[in-house]
Computed example of a mutant assay.
Amino acid sequence: MIGQRPPTVWIDDSHAIVRRGMAACLQQADFVVRGESAVLNPEPVVADLDVLVFEYGGGATLRRAVRLSSGGGTRLVATVRDVTEQSVREMVDAGVCAILPHLTLTADSLITSLRAVVAGNVALPGDMLAKLLVHVTQTSHLGPQGLNPRERSVLRLLADGMDTRGIAEDLRFSERTVKNVVHDVLTKLNCRTRAQAVAVATREGVI
């Protein structure tokens, strides 16, 4: 729940049956489906929208989705038919919070991933994390000061799929403290997203 209301989502996919299937699954899980589109047409209405699920069709589609969601609190979730190292890198670098391969997409994985994203977490399957590692190890590195024990603890819980509230409860921190720690970790690791930070920390062996 977002405050006292159910989370809102817009579903984009080139196939109407896929859109309707995702909508039915999410509605049963108490999501409110605001609308549907194919290749972002008609253009999604993102005002007060929590999640935009869009079909990744290359850089142009990704840039359009990022533009639509910029300046607001809308989180991006991408479905993808052809998973490559380049596509994973592009999506994570652009701030996509979850990547869902069509071949392995199920009702449970869709609902679980969107709930994680709404809670402020990321949802990146292990095989995609491996692809991302190849990229982030070339562009990011630990700062000379490294990570302190508190930062490592928060990163471990992020890697386990926990959201800000769950981390705060587990470590007995305030949610504000957790957010500040995450910010510091992203800065130290030269990462833009939590997914990148987890990938870097995993590769460097610090979690």
Rank of each mutant, 00 (worst) to 15 (best):
D108A: 07
G21A: 11
M1L: 11
E151P: 01
P7Y: 04
V51Y: 00
I111A: 09
L62T: 06
A23M: 08
L100F: 08
C191T: 13
I11Y: 06
A78C: 08
L100M: 05
V66F: 01
P42T: 07
M162E: 07
G71S: 04
G3R: 11
R75K: 13
A123F: 12
L124H: 03
T164N: 08
T177E: 06
V206S: 03
D163P: 00
G35K: 06
V92H: 07
P125D: 10
R176L: 10
D184M: 08
V117S: 03
Q196K: 01
V88F: 11
A16Q: 15
D160E: 08
A78W: 05
V53Y: 04
V92P: 03
L147W: 08
L147N: 00
V185S: 04
V32W: 00
V206P: 00
G73R: 15
A107P: 03
G73F: 09
R176G: 12
D50H: 06
V154S: 01
T187N: 07
R75D: 00
R64W: 09
T84K: 08
I99K: 06
K188G: 09
T202R: 03
T137C: 14
P149R: 13
G21D: 00
V198L: 09
P144F: 05
Q196I: 07
A123P: 05
E169W: 00
Q145A: 12
D160H: 10
D127Q: 14
D127Y: 15
T74L: 03
T84V: 07
I207T: 06
L186H: 03
V182C: 05
L142S: 09
D12M: 14
L158G: 00
R203Q: 15
Q27P: 02
E55Q: 09
G166S: 06
L100R: 01
L132T: 01
H135K: 04
P42Y: 04
V181L: 10
W10N: 10
D93R: 14
S70Y: 08
R172E: 15
V206L: 12
A130G: 08
M22G: 09
V154G: 00
D163K: 02
A130P: 03
V80A: 07
N41T: 12
V39F: 14
R89E: 15
P6H: 05
L133W: 10
V83T: 05
E43M: 09
V182D: 06
R67G: 06
W10M: 06
T79R: 02
I99A: 04
K131H: 15
C25L: 09
L52G: 04
E175H: 09
V32M: 07
T164K: 02
V92Q: 05
V53M: 07
T74A: 03
V134L: 11
N121P: 01
L114K: 02
R172Y: 12
V9C: 06
D127M: 12
R172K: 15
A94F: 05
S109Y: 02
R34D: 09
L186N: 05
A24Q: 10
Q138H: 14
R67C: 04
S153M: 14
R20P: 01
M128K: 01
R152V: 15
L103I: 13
G58T: 03
D108N: 06
R152C: 13
V122Q: 03
E36R: 08
A199G: 04
S153Y: 11
L147V: 11
I167D: 05
A16M: 13
L158V: 02
S87I: 05
T104M: 14
